[in-house]
Design a protein around this nucleic acid. Structure first.
Length: 931
RNA sequence: GGGUGGUUAGCUCAGCUGGUAGAGCAUCGCCCUUACAAGGCGGGGGUCACAGGUUCGAACCCUGUACCACCCACCA
């Protein structure tokens, strides 16, 4: 083996080997275990969220595969309608071409070209993460099978009356020229103004002052509303006001929607351009004046808008109206005002409520089952608190606008005749025959496509062959766990639950849930807790953490292709400061282990490069420990021939015990999705116990000329077998390094099989926990620690062989010393050990205690008397403080009366131990002082 | 306006059903000892945000406050 761990040298070849050998495919036997990958954007590239996500999913997948389950991790990609279309449009824009110049078909060809060109990026990157997905089953939301599923779902929902078409207000994106769903609108607080405008009451000299944040919409006002009980205005209800500019007369209405306390208590009502006003308008039968075109510029309309306003952008029109108001005296005042501005999550422009024809899914009937499934535990969220978020949204769910005025996506399977009739069917022929439409009547398919999330909602079952009742669907559905970020619970998780339960049924007709568990994780943020984003220039690419990147390349990457080039300098500076040496090549295993170690309770994850460095070092530790084991076991008898001519030492029996406990911890942790605890358990076991203690102990046996063959064999056997088991234990988290080493140790450890991937996962066996051995090693550690502590604090060179005197030990101390003397002498670097009789006076010594056993190190010239006195003083103070606290408790009558006996006894024992230790240390201080 | 999560060592976080506050990184000291300096050994460092309450006993349970983050909601 190479002297240092080189991840790139081993990671490159194993993945191809695994994939080539088909190890990722379900075994076909055992209990099914299924995870569906959240399909990334087909033309996207890997980000930290994917890295985290994949680490978790692959750990679960490999774990269950090694448990012998029939494990499927289904991969695939999403066509990501708006996002992908925007990318291609941007490319065209660079050549001064619009999609309309090309026309629909040619444009779609371009998108498919782009997909072919960039579609492999993300899947190749997922391979770099070591993800053991079954690539032979890879799907794409727009491939034939899934498109069929989409069509089928749409048609069935329509037949059932759960999809309908209607004209109503939608969130219109004036830049992208499409409707979007409520979820795609982000409202942020922004500073704006509140304009107070004077409307004159018709037939009187009264003036009403309306307060508005959107003065331009007054062109489309249908009424002015006041609260029906408002003493200031109620006498005006039923009268009319004359709108400025258009001069239209609109009624003054009373509606409880109006908040008397807010603004002036008078609200202008624009039913065609405001969701609330729309509702008010319906209640009062107000006419709708649509004053905007698809760009949200002022349109000619029946509202009587003067020509000079027509064609003006909404914000230009606003300015003009304010200028007009000021000039003509109907502007009362302008107050600064912060308001929530709705913006499209993709385009960033202000969303306009606009009246159009769209397709909707009627969600309430679907939500009922979906709520029940979470209520009764058929679906469980981890962590649980996300269920509240789910419930609160689902219980107040709005119909889902699923049509998009885009070209890239699943075209809506609806056809229109020239009379405006609409027919839904799987294809034109079906529509014609079903509705008896003659061939000479022309039909035109709906131009719109479906919301991307419509196809995503079918993902768990469409990928398994639905609507066919395939064997895969029967075997692998419901899936076991969905691993996803909290940010798409509404977009995706909730809709998947609704759609799946509606379409996929058990044999008895009860609905199947898409997954039994939803593991929700937070966002991966940068070391400062900032959201990673291109515009902030703080993005880390998982691939760069794996392969490393030099500073200049990183700076170039972060500052290229920016929307705001003026930020480049600042970003470059910050990057140079934070990553002065660029990024090291930490390797996939370290990256995965880091993600897992951060996967605690569903909160956001701050990713600090210091963490990954620590875990790369852990990989190095595994590597070097394995080198040591191999050096000592290769071409040696490791007692794997079935013969029993070997002997296990206390150390052997102890490390085997500890392995069982580590195995149990890992299994418990994974069962609770606490990957942080799983990584901690293996880290601690491997580094702090196997390496720090057991390997050192093993050296003493292997290098001891007096040790028997049986003892050496026992040690080698334990060394190699515990290593081999540890590798299997760690494999789901760190697949590459464990495979690489396992291939070298498997024979020696008596393991068989071609790959660690398919080896059996280690199972804790409580029968193999040897309590006496553990107690012996704990004793040994305590004694060694005592000596090392003296050495360290007294600044005695590690190379100095120390003589040690022991006093006051009982029989078990003597037995333990006898059987562990060699270990003790070597690990503490001791020259000699001698017993003093109780009461014997010792020479000037430094002291450590192990229970009642006094460990004395003659100080002679080694040690500074005052330093030892100070050291003892420190320890005495610690014990005194502790004893005081215990005494206080024990003196408290109600504690003694009410606390459980177990707790009381524990405190009493501790107090006794403390006082015994104290008296020994005090004696020792006196002795030192006396000398 | 409702709701959720958070506040523990310099930093990032654990801390299961209340019973002696932990880890990694950073830091300090001694060591290039034949697996590993990407390392070994030893040390220092915390009024568990604040105020009350329950309890023999609270980081943990209850109430309230402050600050941070996020989600939802129609305030023109």
């Amino acid at each position: 083996m190479d002297k240092t761990y080189q991840p790139q040298a081993i990671e490159a070849r194993w993945y191809t080997e695994w994939e080539k050998c088909g190890y990722f495919r379900p075994s076909g036997t055992g209990k099914p275990y299924t995870i569906m990958i959240p399909p990334p954007n087909v033309t996207g590239s890997l980000h930290m969220g994917h890295g985290f996500n994949n680490a978790v999913m692959d750990t679960l997948t490999r774990y269950h595969r090694m448990l012998g389950h029939n494990t499927l991790w289904q991969p695939g990609t999403d066509h990501a309608g708006i996002a992908t279309q925007m990318v291609v449009e941007r490319q065209l824009a660079a050549q001064n071409v619009t999609r309309h110049d090309l026309g629909r078909e040619k444009f779609l060809d371009k998108v498919w070209e782009w997909k072919a060109e960039s579609g492999g990026t993300i899947t190749q990157q997922i391979r770099r993460l070591g993800s053991s997905v079954d690539w032979s089953r890879e799907r794409f939301t727009m491939d034939d099978g899934l498109s069929e599923a989409v069509k089928e779902a749409f048609v069935r929902l329509h037949e059932e009356g759960l999809i309908y078409r209607g004209k109503r207000l939608v969130n219109w994106d004036p830049k992208l020229h499409t409707a979007i769903s409520d979820l795609e609108v982000l409202s942020e607080e922004e500073k704006g103004s509140m304009w107070h405008l004077k409307y004159s009451v018709d037939g009187s000299n009264d003036i009403l002052i309306v307060a508005t944040t959107r003065p331009e919409t007054l062109l489309g006002d249908s009424a002015v509303a006041v609260h029906p009980e408002d003493e200031r205005y109620k006498h005006l209800i039923g009268k009319q006001v004359k709108l400025p500019i258009t001069g239209r007369l609109v009624p003054i209405i009373g509606d409880e929607y109006v908040d008397r306390e807010f603004g002036t208590g008078v609200v202008k009502i624009t039913p065609a351009h405001d969701f609330n006003d729309y509702e008010v308008g319906k209640r009062h039968n107000l006419p709708l004046f649509n004053i905007f075109n698809k760009d949200a510029a002022i349109a000619s309309s029946d509202a009587g808008i003067p020509e000079e306003y027509q064609g003006l952008d909404r914000f230009v029109a606003r300015k003009k109206i304010i200028a007009d108001a000021e000039a003509n005296g109907w502007l009362d005042k302008i107050d600064p005002h912060t308001l929530k501005v709705p913006r499209g999550d993709r385009s960033g422009v202000v969303i306009e409520p606009w009246l159009t024809d769209q397709w909707y899914v009627s969600t309430q009937p679907l939500a009922k089952e979906a709520i029940a499934a979470v209520e009764d535990g058929r679906i469980e969220f981890v962590p649980k608190q996300y269920e509240n978020m789910y419930f609160s949204w689902m219980r107040d769910i709005q119909d889902w606008c699923i049509s998009r005025q885009l070209w890239w996506g699943h075209r809506i399977p609806a056809w229109y005749d020239n009379n405006g009739n609409v027919f839904v069917g799987r294809n034109e022929a079906e529509v014609r025959s079903k509705h008896n439409i003659a061939a000479n009547i022309s039909l035109r398919q709906d131009d719109d496509v479906l919301d991307t999330w419509f196809s995503s909602a079918l993902w768990t079952f469409s990928t398994l062959g639905w609507p066919e009742n395939t064997p895969e669907l029967k075997t692998f559905h419901s899936t076991d766990v969905l691993v996803t970020g909290f940010d798409i619970i509404f977009f995706w998780v909730a809709r998947m639950i609704m759609m799946t339960m509606h379409f996929v049924k058990n044999e008895d007709g009860t609905p199947q849930v898409p997954f039994k568990t939803v593991y929700v994780h937070g966002l991966v943020r940068d070391a400062q807790g900032q959201k990673m984003s291109k515009s902030k220039g703080n993005v880390l690419d998982p691939i760069d953490l794996i392969d490393g990147i030099d500073l200049e390349s990183l700076v170039a990457k972060r500052t290229s292709g920016m929307m705001q080039p003026q930020m480049a300098e600042k970003i470059a500076k910050a990057t140079r400061k934070e990553f002065a040496d660029g990024l090291n090549a930490y390797g996939t295993d370290a990256l995965r282990f880091t993600f897992l170690s951060l996967a605690s309770t569903g909160r956001d994850i701050k990713f600090d490069v210091g963490r990954i460095e620590g875990f790369r070092n852990f990989c190095n530790k595994i590597w070097n420990a394995s080198r040591y084991v191999l050096m000592n076991c290769e071409e040696q008898d490791c007692a794997q021939d079935g013969a029993t001519d070997y002997e296990l030492s206390v150390a052997d029996r102890w490390i085997i015990s500890r392995l069982q406990e580590a195995e149990k911890s890992v299994a418990d942790a994974i069962a609770q999705y606490r990957f942080d605890m799983a990584t901690q358990a293996v880290y601690e076991f491997f580094w702090n116990e196997y390496c720090d203690w057991y390997l050192e102990l093993s050296k003493q046996v292997l290098n001891d000329a007096n040790a028997t063959d049986a003892q050496k064999k026992g040690t080698r056997r334990t060394l190699i077998r515990v290593l081999e088991a540890s590798l299997r234990l760690m494999h789901p988290m760190m697949p590459f390094i464990t495979e690489e080493i396992w291939q070298r140790v498997k024979m020696l450890a008596g393991a068989t099989g071609d790959t660690i991937m398919l080896a059996r996962y280690p199972q804790a066996d409580s029968n193999r926990i040897d309590e006496p051995a553990c107690a012996d090693i704990a004793w040994l550690q305590q004694v060694i620690l005592g000596i090392r502590n003296i050495r360290g604090e007294m600044n005695i060179s590690p190379g100095k062989h120390l003589p040690v005197l022991l006093r006051n030990g009982d029989d078990s101390d003597r037995t333990r010393l006898a059987s562990n003397q060699l270990f003790l002498m070597k690990l503490a670097n001791i020259a000699s050990i001698d017993w003093l009789n109780t009461g014997d006076t010792a020479p000037l010594c430094a002291t450590a205690l192990a229970g009642n056993l006094e460990i004395l190190i003659p100080m002679s010239d080694l040690i500074d008397k005052n330093a030892e006195l100070a050291r003892l003083q420190k320890e005495i103070e610690r014990l005194q403080k502790d004893s005081e606290n215990i005494s206080k408790k024990l003196d408290n009558e109600s504690f003694v009366a009410k606390a459980p006996a177990e707790v009381i006894n524990k405190e009493r024992d501790r107090l006794a131990e403390n006082s015994s230790a104290l008296s020994k240390l005090c004696e020792q201080m006196d002795a030192i002082r006396a000398m």
